[in-house]
């Protein structure tokens, strides 16, 4: 049996190591600088020397990139003042250095509540910096396959990216199922029905809806291959008026097409996938092929 490196289980640093060309990574604001969160410290909560995010420069398949990787095991990858500033700084560096792309390895539940205001503002700053990088011609790719997924503000940041590479273990959304269940009741969203949670937020639904541009298996090597493919093939789509009007029409059409849909199964069924109930068990490649075939037939 072959051994793969599970992207889901890997730490932020292990993910960076698996994605970047060997030995090519240089970290900015590394742990030695001990940029920890003063706000966590004030609440006697544990701090991390990198504040839960690794940022730096590397090459991927020889192309220069900037990488930020959130550590889901530290406070659920949540964004605080320092954490957010590191990502924003990286995006600002991209405007000047013009790398081939910025890779955001998102693994975050959103804003860090211990410093909620700072986190919320930081995410807004990341959003602006990200769009500035794109306007400067630098594409930004999100990679999602960690245990925290991409939620809250990081779910919005992800959807600003030019490409979204996901595994089916990865989740992408705004409000987590637990929050919805707490506020609206278990009938609205049963967060313990894990299979349902993934059918509503997981990689296969996001790929089917076109939000994830590439679906890969939970394998760091597959993530690297998808990133390389994205780097090689990505053509910058300008966010001009025409493009945004088209996006507006597409989002409206999706809502009209799914007036009552509350389960990914219905999306797969409506798309005409041969066995919608079997989708959760399909390997990423098989699922991609089925979607490609549907796209060709359409």
């Amino acid at each position: 049996m072959s051994r793969r490196i599970s992207y889901f289980e890997a730490s932020a640093r292990a993910r960076v190591a698996a994605l970047a060309d060997a030995g090519s990574f240089t970290e900015y604001c590394p742990p030695a600088q001990r940029r920890t969160s003063p706000h966590l410290a004030r609440l006697d909560a544990p701090v991390a020397f990198d504040d839960g995010v690794v940022v730096g420069a590397a090459t991927v398949d020889g192309r220069p990139v900037l990488i930020a990787a959130q550590e889901g095991k530290f406070n659920g990858g949540a964004v605080g003042e320092v954490h957010g500033a590191k990502i924003r700084g990286l995006l600002e560096r991209a405007v000047r250095e013009k790398p081939a792309a910025v890779l955001l390895l998102v693994d975050s539940g959103g804003v860090r509540l211990h410093e909620a205001n700072a986190g919320l503002i930081a995410i807004s700053e990341i959003m602006r910096a990200l769009m500035a990088a794109q306007a400067a011609g630098v594409p930004v790719f999100a990679l999602i396959g960690g245990s925290c997924g991409a939620f809250g503000g990081m779910g919005i940041v992800t959807r600003l990216c030019d490409e979204v590479i996901m595994s089916e273990e990865g989740r992408l959304g705004l409000s987590g199922p637990e929050v919805i269940e707490t506020v609206k009741g278990v009938g609205e969203f049963d967060s313990r029905d894990r299979a349902l949670v993934w059918r509503v937020t997981g990689g296969k639904l996001r790929r089917a809806l076109g939000e994830a541009t590439r679906l890969v298996d939970d394998d760091a090597v597959a993530f690297r291959a998808a990133a390389i493919a994205a780097l090689a093939r990505h053509r910058k789509a300008p966010a001009d008026l025409t493009a945004l009007k088209a996006a507006q029409a597409a989002l409206g059409a999706r809502r009209a097409a799914h007036p009552d849909t509350r389960d990914g199964l219905e999306v797969w069924r409506a798309m005409g996938l041969p066995r919608p109930e079997a989708v959760p068990m399909l390997a990423a490649d098989t699922f991609n092929q089925q979607l490609d075939q549907l796209a060709t037939e359409a």
């Binding site: 779910g155 919005i156 600003l160 705004l174 409000s175 609205e188 509503v200 639904l205 009552d260 509350r262």
Partner: peptide, 19 residues
């Protein structure tokens, strides 16, 4: 807060507004 909004990608709508 709703399951349907999550399924249809409310975060994507917000990102679109931001753009």
């Amino acid at each position: 807060l709703s399951r349907r909004e999550e399924l249809l990608g409310l975060n994507g709508c917000f990102a679109h507004v931001a753009r």
